[in-house]
Design a protein around this nucleic acid. Sequence first.
DNA 1: CTTGCCCAAGAAAGCGTTTTCTCAGGTCGC
DNA 2: GCGACCTGAGAAAACGCTTTCTTGGGCAAG
Lengths: 344, 344
Amino acid sequence: MVRKSATGRIGIADVAIKAGVSHATVSRVMNGNFTVDPDIAARVRAAAAELKYQPNPVGRSLALGKTDTIGIVVPDLANPTFQAILRGLSRAAAQDSYRVLIADSFEVSSEEAILAGEARRRCDGLVLCAPRMSDAELEEIAPSLHPLVLINRTTAAAGVPSLVVDYGQGVQDIAEHLVDLGHTRLAFLAGPPRSASNGLRLQGLESFKAAHPQVEVTMLEGGSDFDTGHEAVDAVLESGATGILAFNDLVAMGLMSGLHERGLDVPGDISVTGFDDIPFAKYTTPALTTAAVPITELGEQAWQQLRALIRKEENEAPGSRYQPRLEVRSSTGPAKAPRTAAHG
Amino acid sequence: MVRKSATGRIGIADVAIKAGVSHATVSRVMNGNFTVDPDIAARVRAAAAELKYQPNPVGRSLALGKTDTIGIVVPDLANPTFQAILRGLSRAAAQDSYRVLIADSFEVSSEEAILAGEARRRCDGLVLCAPRMSDAELEEIAPSLHPLVLINRTTAAAGVPSLVVDYGQGVQDIAEHLVDLGHTRLAFLAGPPRSASNGLRLQGLESFKAAHPQVEVTMLEGGSDFDTGHEAVDAVLESGATGILAFNDLVAMGLMSGLHERGLDVPGDISVTGFDDIPFAKYTTPALTTAAVPITELGEQAWQQLRALIRKEENEAPGSRYQPRLEVRSSTGPAKAPRTAAHG
DNA sequence: CTTGCCCAAGAAAGCGTTTTCTCAGGTCGC
DNA sequence: GCGACCTGAGAAAACGCTTTCTTGGGCAAG
């Protein structure tokens, strides 16, 4: 019988025996090496087909020193942003016959380095998505992770392309939009403290405040999910702001839902904006004004950059910067007279 | 110098040389084998730490015959349902130090079998998520994919646990709910034709129709995303139905958005229901009435089942069936007099 | 007819681990 | 004091593949 292999699976040896040739020849045929006699090649192929032989990728990986797999580590797989990046990455990588291994750090920044290292060792390259670790730590481990591509984070370590979204500019665009609508009291519902993109937004708001001293901008603590927005209703109302910049679309949706429950009208009473333009943003009622980030493209670009690194190609454009595009929908509208002065 | 290995990475050999012992001993120490002299063990550990040695998982996998990785193949990574399953699976697997490799078939059912095979060979087990392939094909390839767990699909092949959601019951519950509200004309916005869960829903509706001959149920073609729902507005209005059962929450949201644009009130003019209870469902306006599927739990259970298979444990409960729970929110309300008879 | 080449296919050496097998040295018992 | 037993560590085989190295046979040229 066949099945001589210890693992019980059909191996190259089985095919070699069946075809009456050596392992080497089978390998050559399977890899399209043309120095094999056509007759023998045909015999090998027939044997392989009959045994339904499929090369063991692990053995192959060991011999070849590559796994045809890349890893991605994300802080939270529940976040639509990271899901979209993952999707874009997976799609692009699949086009080049690469697979994607995922590692979710669940926002535990202390785990990221270990997770990244483990993932990297199993893969040919790694995408580190919005890592929460410190700059110092990131810079320290970056070399050991090469080929490495960063998303929404930069590092001083050499040879690490970064794809960053200009959240600072995006948040300024949104603020400008609200000011144009007559809002003079704004509030920012911040994101996770360790998020670099939150830092960029805060910087952007500082620039905005410098340029618009007459506008009042209240900072509110927050997070990155629905509930954050939903629970922030009181704080938002208390601030007296009429234009709210939520950290992202999720927070904005939660907030709108909360406002709705309070009987407040968006945008009649309060204007709400999001960030990211996740697919759902278009379908909220009212449709959400937001800053669109070309997020799937980000995942795809990450693969392009990583592929260049893996192939050791000269990378003409190491990393790139993405500008969000203001997407005005119906969750923003003209400011009405400040509620505190409504009696006047 | 160190770095004798061809790959340029630190290998077990480097540690062995540095510690002045054999490969075997290093391996023993790294794997916590206690038959090693404590002094030598300490020397090895010191050498490993100094060289920052990390075992190569590929070599390890080859020797051990396992990869500590499982694969999941989904028809569409953009679908929140599959994202949630992936998340649950990944989380549960990570708890047992397993990683997840993803394969997206992009709804191309002809690719599924190849994709599944490739993924399986790199992994210790596979989760096949709502495969679109035919029953015959599924049954044929199932044995070669073992250990295998199916989600939302069953097969006659032996030893393949299935986790299925009782979509038929769920859809009946929703229909009953609408009837209780006085609706007599319903419409079902179907999902992808190849989706087994769509088939289950259709069966459920047949049962429902049999039990409620007085209720008119119109079948409308559809899909599984926002746009499907958004584009279905005309067909829905044409049907004259006042209670709409959308294939899932996404479709329902698209439909509500479309109805809103037409100036129609939900649930005043038309009641809309979804399915799945994705996180967003709670935050739509109006909040969506839907059938909640314990979807993250599904991913987690998939891992439990797969783990049992991998460990060759006796599996007391091979597979299980999940009952959706009706989640009544505010997108459904009392039926108003049929519009076609409004003048009466 | 012999010598030298070239080519195709087999033999064997990796790839980086784990694990069995083997053997040297020490301990204990008689 | 010598042989049996045991322990701990090195040697080597195994995992399944790719690839270099080797070899034998066929062919052309001298």
